[in-house]
C-alpha cells in the first residue's frame, strides 16, 4: 500500500536518495511543501539541487525514499511494484518545469510550443488550446511573438515562453531550475517579474535560484542544500540574517559579496 498523502500538502518527500553509480548525490532528503507555498532552493554548485527537482517529476528515478506530489505517490521504495502502476505522464502533466536552458522547441513557433502538450497530452480542441495560449502569452508579455520561432527571441523572451508553455498544462506545481542563470543581466528582471506574479496568484513553486534578491522577496521558505542534504531551512528573513550553520554562512558570504 502506498501511503495516501494528506491532500493539503503539494509535495511530500521522505528520505529521498539518489545515486549515480557508486556516487550518492542525494543522501536522504525530507521535505514537505504546502499548496501555495513558494520554496527557494539555494546551495553551492553540485549540491544536488537540480537532481532534487528532477526527481519530483521523475526525470530522474530516485534510488530510495518516497515522493508524493499533489496527493499521489510518485515513487515509493518500499512498494517497488506500485511504481509500475504510477502513471508518470499523468503526474508530469500536473507539474510544470522550467529549465535553465529554456529548451524551447526550435522547429515550432511560439504558439505551437505552447499548445503542443495541451493538444497531445490533454487532447484539447485546437481552438481551446490556442485561446488559452493567447491568454498565457499576454500574461508573459509576448502576445506579439506568437508566430515567431524561438531563435528570433531574446533569452529572456524565450524563458517567458517556456513558462507559458508549462502553464498551458494548468499545473498544480511549478518547478524552476535556475531559470535566469543563462540570461544576460538586463533580461533577468522580466522573467523574475513573471515569476513574482505567478507567486502572488498562489501558485505552488519550487525555485532553484542564485537570485538572492528574488529569494528574499518572494520565497515563503528557503532551503539550503549542500552535499546532498538539506542543511538549513527557514523563512528568508530568518535564514539570511541569522544563518546557523557555518556552511550557510560561508555560502552566503560567497554569493552576497
Amino acid at each position: 500500500m502506498v501511503e495516501t498523502a494528506i491532500k493539503t500538502q503539494a509535495i511530500q518527500i521522505k528520505e529521498l536518495r539518489k545515486s549515480y553509480g557508486a556516487q550518492e548525490i542525494l543522501t536522504g532528503i525530507d521535505l514537505n511543501i504546502n499548496y501555495g507555498e513558494v520554496v527557494c532552493v539555494i546551495g553551492p554548485s553540485g549540491s544536488g539541487k537540480s537532481t532534487l527537482l528532477r526527481c519530483l517529476n521523475l526525470l530522474e528515478v530516485p534510488s530510495g525514499g518516497t515522493i508524493s506530489v499533489d496527493g499521489e505517490a510518485v515513487f515509493s521504495q518500499q512498494n517497488k511494484s506500485d511504481n509500475k502502476k504510477i502513471n508518470i505522464q499523468e503526474i508530469r502533466s500536473r507539474v510544470g518545469m522550467v529549465f535553465q536552458q529554456f529548451n524551447l522547441w526550435p522547429h515550432k513557433t511560439v504558439l505551437n510550443n505552447v499548445i503542443e502538450a495541451p493538444l497531445l497530452v490533454r487532447k484539447q480542441e485546437k481552438a481551446q488550446a490556442v485561446e488559452k495560449a493567447e491568454v498565457l502569452l499576454r500574461k508573459v508579455g509576448l502576445s506579439d511573438k506568437r508566430s515567431s520561432y524561438p531563435s528570433s527571441l531574446s533569452g529572456g523572451q524565450q524563458q517567458r515562453v517556456a513558462i507559458a508553455r508549462a502553464l498551458a498544462m494548468d499545473p498544480k506545481i511549478m518547478l524552476f531550475d535556475e531559470p535566469t542563470s543563462a540570461l544576460d543581466p538586463e533580461l533577468v528582471g522580466d522573467v523574475l517579474k513573471v515569476m513574482k506574479d505567478l507567486a502572488s496568484e498562489g501558485m505552488t513553486m519550487v525555485v532553484v535560484t542564485h537570485e538572492m534578491g528574488f529569494a528574499r522577496d518572494v520565497a515563503d521558505r528557503i532551503i539550503f542544500m549542500d552535499q546532498g542534504v538539506i542543511v538549513e531551512e527557514g523563512a528568508p528573513s530568518e535564514l539570511f540574517s541569522n544563518p546557523k550553520s557555518a556552511r550557510l554562512r560561508q555560502f552566503l558570504a560567497s554569493v552576497l559579496d
Binding site: L59, R92, S93, W105, E116, A117, R165
Partner: peptide, 12 residues
C-alpha cells in the same frame, strides 16, 4: 533538453 522538456510536460 529537447526531449526532456517534452517529457516534463507529460508527453509520451
Amino acid at each position: 533538453g529537447q526531449a526532456e522538456a517534452a517529457r516534463a510536460l507529460g508527453m509520451g
